[in-house]
Design a binder for these strands. Structure first.
Lengths: 183, 183
DNA sequence: TAGCACATGTAACTCGTTACATGATTTG
DNA sequence: CAAATCATGTAACGAGTTACATGTGCTA
């Protein structure tokens, strides 16, 4: 009766607040889904599976369009399953980074062109970093409060934000170094 | 006539030296495939596709077992296709990190247990970092030579190694910070 | 009034993993 | 002599993307 990774991503969102399928799909799209993404065509069938497993329930609250709007809530069993999953070790994830794969063959590309690619990538990392820094400013003042209690959703959200900030900074620095080597 | 990402991963390896399917599969397995992985059941059909596209050729050099051993070489067309792919912008990659997804729901886990998970993850990053540092030591003395010419495969290999080193260091530091917050 | 946001679903396809299948050579 | 390594392939399944399908209400 274990859910898929996508299922736990949905449960992780629903454990914070109730949402409908559309809102869940939005939350799992770039740039909002920071470490998991899914399209709506994957979300709706998964919600049906989670409901069959009794991890969530829905209440119809009639909306626009040809179908009803379904507002989903996590159940006590869903919360237990989510906590058990979060508290078990993550299987080692196979790395998959198409950009780095291109860098591995960058020696075949004319250096000035290669440098352009790296500078474009640098811009993407700087944009994402600026976005994360804005999120951090939005939390400012609450930091000490957030960190004082690791059993609040805000603690987890701040921990993942710190990770994003750190990742984008290191990626930016690496791009700067490589662009300089290709000058 | 464009190859898949896996196809370009294989071409990137074959552009450096000829290999058989078994050796290519080994190179794409952890911990050797640092930014792309694949199992042998995916590699063999892809090699057939690359050969149909005339990006590679093979010569039979009879080996053990019930089938012949096929040694693959990249063609001039394969090298051109690889260079064109490496020189074009990478599509923005959807982030997918199951460990970070767990951290997002870590507030539901008893803090002492949560801390154990983070310390285990820290150990994994430290092991990978030690591995990368060994690779760097193996290259020592050649650094200046490697960086002087960006059109050699060694330049690309060193650039990706620097990225791996930077990534593991930032991941380690983040784990140390979070484990400390959970003490 | 055209387009976008809201809202839910299905179908066809690709990519990737695990399991099935075979058999010679080397090492403990 | 048993197990691991070398070596190549197919089959079944699950996960994920793109396209198909429908229709309301709001805004430029």
């Amino acid at each position: 009766m274990a859910a898929s990774t996508l299922g736990f991503a949905l449960l992780g969102l629903l454990a914070r607040k109730s949402r409908n399928g559309y809102e869940l799909s939005q939350a799992l799209r770039r740039p909002i889904g920071y470490f998991w993404t899914a399209s709506h065509s994957q979300v709706y069938p998964e919600l049906a599976r989670l409901e069959a497993a009794r991890y969530i329930t829905h209440t119809v609250i009639d909306g626009p369009g040809p179908r009803d709007t379904k507002r989903y809530d996590i159940t006590a069993a869903g919360r237990r399953a989510l906590a058990a999953w979060a508290g078990s070790p993550a299987p080692p994830a196979p790395e998959r980074d198409e950009f780095m794969l291109k860098v591995y063959s960058l020696w075949l590309v004319e250096p000035a062109r290669a440098r352009t690619l790296i500078v474009e990538q640098l811009a993407r990392h700087e944009a994402q970093l600026a976005h994360y820094e804005q999120l951090e400013r939005d939390m400012r003042g609450e930091h000490e409060a957030l960190l004082s209690d690791p059993t609040t959703p805000q603690f987890s959200a701040y921990a993942t934000l710190r990770r994003g900030l750190s990742f984008e900074r290191h990626a930016r620095d690496w791009c700067v170094w490589l662009a300089d080597e290709l000058r």
